[in-house]
Amino acid sequence: MSRSRLIFVVFYFTVVLIGAVHLRVSASRVFYRWCKAQVAQDNLKLQLGDKQLKLEHLLNPSVISERIEKEPDPDK
């Protein structure tokens, strides 16, 4: 094998190795970011659920009845 061929093989082999490692690290990083995004999405869902429940509490018929009873009659 000529010297240039040997250099080419070694270079090619090294590039493939570095590429494989890079792809693997990138995949892990993307997966980690995806996990974080999913947690953030879950947190947003929870906040939304929390707000909806607070709203439901404010709008429920018994609370509205109480408020109507407390409000002064405009005719009086």
Binding site: L46, G49, D50, Q52, L53, E56, N60
Partner: peptide
């Protein structure tokens, strides 16, 4: 459709 019971974290 008004919520009577629901779970949240």
């Amino acid at each position: 459709g008004r919520v009577l019971a629901a779970s949240n974290k």
